[in-house]
Simulated scan of single mutants.
Amino acid sequence: MPARNQPARRIVRKITAITASALIWIQPAAAAPNATESCSTPSSLTPLMDLLNSLTELAYIAGIGIGTVGFMIAAVMIMMPGEDWTRRGKKTFKNVFIGVILLLSAHMIVGYLTSELGTAVCT
């Protein structure tokens, strides 16, 4: 086996391990105890839910802007002459990609948490 395929194999093993761990530990959402009951968030938690919604919308918009600028910077670095610039551009691209995924998934994560929190605090 050539030595240059070893990093790719390590990456595949890491992704497989992370996916397997996630599948083991993530539990499906529990069903509501009674579907006919109306469940709403108490008025004392409404400001918190509104704040979380506003923050996730802001993170989504910021993620789009920051990601666009980051990808443009990485592209310019890759186009610069020299091996060092190319390496730094690829590293920047990877870091921007990870950051954009985290920022853009914030809405989904907080939405899930607020829906679970909303059903847990039903009166």
Score class of each variant (00 low, 15 high):
residue 37 E to S: 02
residue 20 A to V: 13
residue 24 I to H: 08
residue 35 A to R: 07
residue 17 A to R: 15
residue 29 A to C: 11
residue 21 S to P: 03
residue 14 K to C: 00
residue 42 P to V: 12
residue 23 L to M: 07
residue 40 S to M: 08
residue 12 V to W: 05
residue 24 I to T: 07
residue 15 I to Q: 03
residue 22 A to P: 07
residue 14 K to I: 01
residue 15 I to L: 07
residue 15 I to N: 03
residue 17 A to L: 15
residue 37 E to Q: 03
residue 29 A to Q: 09
residue 23 L to K: 02
residue 40 S to D: 05
residue 42 P to Q: 06
residue 37 E to D: 06
residue 19 T to M: 11
residue 38 S to L: 12
residue 40 S to Y: 13
residue 42 P to A: 05
residue 33 P to Y: 07
residue 27 Q to I: 03
residue 40 S to L: 08
residue 32 A to K: 13
residue 20 A to T: 11
residue 18 I to P: 12
residue 27 Q to G: 00
residue 16 T to C: 07
residue 33 P to F: 05
residue 26 I to N: 07
residue 35 A to V: 14
residue 23 L to F: 00
residue 36 T to I: 11
residue 33 P to T: 05
residue 24 I to Y: 10
residue 20 A to N: 06
residue 36 T to K: 05
residue 19 T to R: 09
residue 18 I to K: 08
residue 21 S to T: 05
residue 36 T to H: 03
residue 42 P to I: 14
residue 34 N to W: 09
residue 15 I to S: 01
residue 33 P to D: 10
residue 24 I to C: 06
residue 33 P to L: 04
residue 25 W to R: 09
residue 31 A to M: 12
residue 23 L to E: 04
residue 19 T to K: 06
residue 31 A to Y: 09
residue 16 T to Y: 02
residue 28 P to Y: 02
residue 20 A to W: 10
residue 23 L to I: 05
residue 31 A to V: 14
residue 32 A to C: 14
residue 12 V to M: 01
residue 31 A to H: 08
residue 24 I to P: 07
residue 13 R to D: 13
residue 19 T to V: 15
residue 36 T to V: 12
residue 25 W to Y: 10
residue 21 S to W: 04
residue 14 K to M: 01
residue 33 P to V: 08
residue 42 P to M: 11
residue 13 R to M: 11
residue 41 T to Q: 04
residue 13 R to H: 13
residue 17 A to N: 13
residue 39 C to T: 10
residue 36 T to G: 04
